[in-house]
């Protein structure tokens, strides 16, 4: 269905897309490279390495392990907070009156428009006011003001085309609210919940600016990476950053490929065509 424009325009577009893909992927390859290079020391021979050992070597020391566990904990806690909140917000806005929905939407989405540094500082100030120390929990709470709003936006987009008369009809026919939730709303929202959960995890696991001020003495992978940089000097090739990247890219690729496969299997349209 793409433009049937002249061949030259199409050639330029394809050339641009190829260059863009190179621009997008080349830095990722460069980021990951030192992880496979690490075992060979300074030399550039990857033959000695192979896949697993260099990454494992990078994570072998206790500090990196603690950072990894901290990042995982923040990511999972952010998911645990964002999914119920985002779903509740979407269900509320979906059924509130026009004006109330608009107001609630503005309040809940506002944190997305406030930079992470500001959120982190605000959360740690408010927490110290009531005697809560910085830590993984506070970091997850600070991060969730934004991630819950993202989850809510995803749920809202999914709820929008859903006809409320469907729920009303079920209730008129004697279904309980719980049954409507289980049989109509949840099956419709479940795929979005998976996507929203993954997005929330990524935003919690890899974040720096929001959670760094709220972490207290705890550590995360990205926090450690940034903290080790000398003031005013930029980053360069680094085996630890590479190992973190290998971890994220491997998991992401697995999830995305699984999602593509399941999506193709599950589409009702595909099933109908068969």
């Amino acid at each position: 269905m793409h433009d049937q424009g002249d061949g030259a325009a199409r050639l330029i577009l394809n050339l641009y897309l190829s260059l863009f893909l190179l621009w997008l992927i080349l830095p990722v390859v460069a980021l990951l490279w030192p992880a496979f290079d690490a075992i060979a020391g300074a030399s550039f021979d990857a033959t000695a390495g192979g896949w697993a050992p260099p990454v494992a070597a990078v994570f072998a020391d206790a500090g990196s392990m603690r950072g990894l566990l901290g990042s995982l904990a923040v990511g999972l806690a952010v998911v645990a907070l964002s999914l119920p909140l985002g779903l509740a917000g979407a269900l509320a806005i979906h059924r509130l009156g026009d004006r109330a929905a608009g107001l609630l939407f503005a309040v809940l989405v506002a944190p997305i428009l406030v930079p992470g540094v500001v959120q982190g500082l605000a959360a740690s100030l408010a927490a110290s006011e009531v005697g809560i120390d910085g830590g993984l929990v506070l970091a997850a709470l600070a991060r969730s003001s934004q991630t819950a709003a993202c989850a809510m936006l995803l749920f809202l987009a999914r709820l929008d085309p859903l006809d409320p008369r469907l729920e009303q009809a079920a209730i008129d026919l004697g279904a309980s609210r719980g049954l409507v939730m289980r049989r109509i709303l949840w099956p419709h929202l479940a795929p979005t919940a998976v996507v929203a959960g993954l997005v929330a995890f990524v935003q919690g696991f890899g974040d720096h600016d929001t959670i760094a001020l709220a972490l207290g003495g705890e550590r995360t992978l990205v926090g450690d990476l940034v903290a080790r940089l000398p003031e005013g000097a930029g980053a360069g090739a680094d085996p630890r950053a590479a190992a973190t990247g290998v971890l994220v890219v491997a998991v992401t690729l697995a999830v995305v490929l699984l999602w593509l496969r399941l999506r193709h299997r599950e589409t009702p349209l595909d099933a109908a065509r068969r």
Binding site: P27, L31, V222, A235, A237, V256
Partner: peptide, 25 residues
Amino acid sequence: LVVFALAEPLRAWAWATTVDPNGPL
């Protein structure tokens, strides 16, 4: 999606590695 999953700090690090005169590229 893969680049998105790396989150901003690692994406920035990827770029820094690419333009690093002593880097793999």
